[in-house]
Design a protein around this nucleic acid. Structure first.
Length: 869
RNA sequence: GCCUGGGUGGCGGAAUUGGUAGACGCAAGGGACUUAAAAUCCCUCGGGGCUUCGCUCUGUGCGGGUUCGAUUCCCGCCCCAGGCACCA
């Protein structure tokens, strides 16, 4: 091999070398450190921080690449950009790993953080690492404990004995939001029921505001807002009292259909409701009812699988009275009535509610039609399902003949006047249960004293530090409750012996305010948030993360923000102004009949590498270890470099859509970068000492076209990034420009003006690609002789005049079909264009001998001619 | 069942306000360079038909409608993905 000078066209694209050297330089120069600057407009860009599970997976890579491009772009646009990163580092996997491998959760977690941090740095993300936070550290969770004390004081945190969702695998409680189709959201185990003393956050205090603000978040995807609205589930209706037939007591129900009250023929009570046993006490049927209730409770634990249970009930041998008709209504305990929604009691209107209809048919209960549909009248003898739509009231006393929608109000008012009911609002949302019987979480700062009850830890004693030396055998409930030194303490109020609360907080509490902490990550006086700095940065301008957090994390964060605002530590109503939910990264699965799912490297030429059997290529699914369709980011970086991984993630599909991973696609992205590298190398010697074209002199022909394309590309890329985050089309536009540049090879006697224009194009491509492939572009920028960091360069602007076409194509349609195209000057007069269109030879064939009835001219686009048939 | 999205070449995807459907990339085919291969560069590429250097018909899940003109708007239907699911 001969000696080659590492300059000019001889230099090869070596991503590893370039990327590592620039990562080092950025770090040394502190390029991405950021401080508040009142003179500059701020931009807070945040990606959802990861749980340190061990390694970065490709979903993270995509999420953080999208964020990094926006952060770098906004920075070039002159914003003071806050782009932090941290670790959601409390949680069960650490504890499970400890039980399995004997590694302490803190050690396991910190090792993972160290490794993942290295991976993120290797991707070249522009984080301000000085603001890094890890939620399992006392300097983070101490403030969370402080907020807990404030919440406790205000009654926003409270303890109550309740039946909870219990995951036997995770040995912990789950919030309603954390149960998905009856299964644990994390491990997929069936969720059971358990009665425990539990801590709750009173999110329902903020339910109105949380719902109302769903209409004031224009920067959020409608899909997410809809999911939140449904989750909160507001419904307007009435609470109505049904007096008992033989006592002065009354049963209170909630209904949204008070218009059907004249059709209420029986009463249903949730089987678990305490009233059920009260009503049958000392009666002959007490025992069978007791058995029924037990059975239903067991049914509940067995879960609602995909099929509804059979509706069942038992007559309680007692009656109440319909408050408007005075008719006797039998009372049943039923398995399908929810105990914790509304009042747990339901007035049953079998004619106009499908569930009640089925129940009435089964137990032979009376039906009275009170709403008649407009078309054909209902008949109780022949109806085979409830009529739930609108109509005219019948059998409803003074309300007969009224439209049911109007009767809603009228009947509500009537009930209020006679003192039998009142208008109310119900929500589906329940309070947020945050107690976890787990070790690896933030301790709840409460002390239980036999004399004084639950006593908050004094603020001065915070943090309540999670002890290191625990016994993590995985047996016998929470390790904290077995840790004497932690539990045994004295009561802050009476100084008597007392025990610490051993529940830890749900890890969703940490992620409900980490974005605030980033604003003043090292602030170590109360309340952990420096108001001045938080006011400068909050709210987050752009939040980016997976759609899977549409309800849980985002709803909790909104609640926490409003609460902290009311505590006076925050000045915003909502944490995230704009939200981008990116799609999942998917890949096809491969499966051997004998060996199950296989990793790509276990497949050779479509055959299993273990048994040589044929491979079935399964459908494309979200990458997961169990399906073995994961792609290793380390391997990709080693093979192609971080820039290629970044550009592929962006190019293959727009961010909100799922991304299908394709090795060939990666290859294509790598090829494009090589192409860009090579053309710059080819021109390097010719343009190194030339200044980019400044537009002072006129250009002609190919050169003029190249320059026009350059400015058009700036326009296109800017709007694609700014308005829609459609990086795929932005990259396409740059590819087009590069193709044009390849076509425009200059003659051998080209003058400096030619190279000036070429330099302008090359510099433009470098600047436009800088946020997407920052390493390669920094290197090229330097090779062109620049000394400043490319990351600090201003985003290029385009000259509208240069970008405008001087000749445009006008399409000519005849009867709606394209029949010709003509090229005219951009400023050509409409009348002239119309006559050109009529004179066009091809068009002539279609209008010859026919009368033109209509001519439509759309400026700069087309002429549409309508002719007689 | 209900609520959201979505359905465009062999594939990923473009088409931004109702105005040239298929940008860009992948795969495929052809050519140039090379002893050869890789790499690279160039060309072709929705489908059908024809009198084939061009012309024509057809085509954005299916069926209708509005319009000079519909991938885009309206009505009905089919399919796929996600969310919720006895919430009275």
């Amino acid at each position: 091999m001969y000696w080659r000078l590492e300059t000019g066209m001889n230099r090869r694209y070596n991503p590893q070398e370039i990327e590592e050297s620039w990562q080092k330089r950025w770090e040394e120069r502190g390029v991405f450190k950021v401080e508040e600057d009142q003179g500059k407009k701020k931009y807070y860009l945040l990606e959802m921080f990861p749980y340190p599970s061990g390694r970065i997976h490709i979903g993270h890579v995509r999420n953080y690449t999208i964020g990094d491009v926006v952060a770098r772009y906004k920075r070039m646009k002159g914003f003071n950009v806050l782009h932090p990163m941290g670790w959601d580092s409390f949680g069960m996997p650490a504890e499970n790993a400890a039980i399995e491998h004997g590694t302490h959760p803190a050690v396991w977690t910190n090792e993972n953080i160290a490794y993942m941090k290295k991976q993120l740095k290797r991707m070249g993300f522009s984080y301000d690492w000085d603001r890094e936070i890890s939620t399992c550290e006392p300097d983070y969770y101490r403030w969370e404990q402080l907020f807990f004390l404030w919440m406790y004081e205000k009654g926003l945190a409270y303890k109550k004995r309740s039946s909870v969702n219990w995951c036997s695998h995770c040995q912990t409680v789950l919030a309603n939001e954390q149960v998905e189709a009856g299964l644990c959201w994390r491990c997929g185990t069936e969720v059971g029921e358990k009665v425990l003393d539990q801590w709750f956050f009173r999110i329902t205090d903020y339910v109105e505001e949380l719902l109302d603000y769903c209409d004031r978040l224009p920067g959020w995807p409608e899909k997410v807002l809809t999911m939140q609205r449904n989750w909160i589930g507001r419904s307007y209706g009435c609470e109505i009292l049904f007096p008992m037939a033989d006592s002065a007591e009354a049963i209170k129900v909630f209904t949204t259909r008070q218009d059907t009250i004249y059709g209420a023929t029986f009463m249903l009570i949730a089987a678990e409701h305490p009233l059920v046993m009260d009503l049958v006490r000392n009666k002959a049927i007490e025992k069978p009812v007791q058995e029924f209730v037990e059975k239903v409770k067991k049914q509940d634990r067995l879960l609602r699988t995909s099929e509804y249970y059979e509706k069942e009930g038992i007559f309680l041998d007692t009656f109440c009275l319909n408050p408007v008709t005075g008719k006797k209504m039998p009372i049943f305990a039923a398995n399908f009535v929810l105990a914790d929604y509304g009042t747990g009691c339901v007035m049953a209107v079998p004619t106009h509610d499908q569930r009640d209809f089925e129940f009435a048919k089964k137990y032979n209960l009376p039906l009275i039609v009170v709403i008649q549909p407009p078309d054909k009248p209902l008949n109780v003898q022949t109806m085979h399902e409830a009529y739930v739509d609108d109509g005219i009231l019948v059998h409803s006393g003074r309300f007969d003949g009224m439209e049911n929608t109007k009767a809603m109000e009228a009947i509500a008012e009537h009930l209020e006047t006679i003192g039998r009911g009142k208008r109310t609002v119900q929500y589906r949302l329940r309070d947020w249960g945050i107690s976890r019987q787990r070790y690896w979480g933030a301790p709840i700062p409460i002390i239980h004293c036999d004399k004084c009850g639950a006593v908050p830890v004094p603020e001065a004693d915070l943090p309540v530090v999670l002890p290191r030396d625990v016994d993590l055998s995985g047996e016998g409930g929470s390790p904290l409750s077995r840790h004497k030194a932690f539990v045994e303490t004295t009561c802050p109020r009476c100084d008597g012996p007392a025990g610490r609360e051993t529940d830890t907080m749900d890890t969703f509490v940490e992620s409900s305010w980490y974005f605030d902490r980033f604003c003043s990550a090292r602030f170590d006086s109360s309340p952990g948030l420096d108001r001045k700095r938080v006011d400068y940065w909050m709210p987050v301008d752009q939040y980016i993360g997976g759609i899977e957090h549409a309800i849980l994390h985002l709803l909790y964060s909104r609640f926490y923000t409003k609460m902290l605002r009311d505590f006076g530590v925050l000045g915003v109503d909502e944490p995230f102004t704009n939200l981008l939910t990116q799609g999942m990264v998917c890949k096809e699965t491969m499966r051997c009949r004998e060996h199950g799912y296989l990793y790509p490297q276990e497949v050779n030429d479509g055959r299993c590498s273990f048994c040589g059997g044929e491979i079935a290529v399964g459908k494309t699914e979200k990458m997961s270890k169990s399906l073995k369709n994961v792609v290793d980011p380390d391997y990709l970086i080693q093979q192609y470099g971080a820039d290629t991984v970044r550009i592929f993630c962006l190019f293959a599909s727009p961010p909100e859509k799922d991304l299908e991973w394709s090795d060939q696609g990666v290859e294509g992205s790598f090829r494009f970068l090589g192409r860009l590298w090579r053309i710059v190398m080819d021109y390097l010697d010719d343009i190194r000492n030339v200044k980019a074209f400044d537009g002072k002199t006129g250009l002609e022909g190919e050169l003029k076209q190249l320059r026009r394309k350059t400015h058009q590309t700036i326009r296109k890329v800017t709007s694609d990034i700014e308005e829609r985050f459609h990086f795929n089309t932005a990259i396409s536009a740059v590819m087009e420009l590069l193709n044009v540049l390849y076509q425009a090879r200059p003659a051998s006697d080209a003058d400096s003006q030619v190279f000036a224009v070429i330099r302008e194009t090359i510099e433009t491509i470098i600047l436009l690609m800088a946020p997407i492939v920052p390493h390669m572009t920094e290197e090229l920028w330097m090779l062109l002789g620049h000394e400043e960091n490319l990351a600090d360069m201003p985003w290029p602007s385009f000259d509208a005049e240069v970008a405008s076409e001087e000749e445009i194509t006008i399409v000519i349609q005849v009867n709606g079909k394209v029949r010709g195209r003509i090229h005219v000057a951009a400023d050509e007069d409409g009348e002239a264009i119309k006559s050109l269109a009529l004179a066009d030879e091809k068009v002539g064939r279609f209008i010859q001998g026919k009368r033109v009835i209509r001519e439509v001219y759309v400026p700069k686009k087309l002429v549409s001619l309508v002719v007689e048939d």
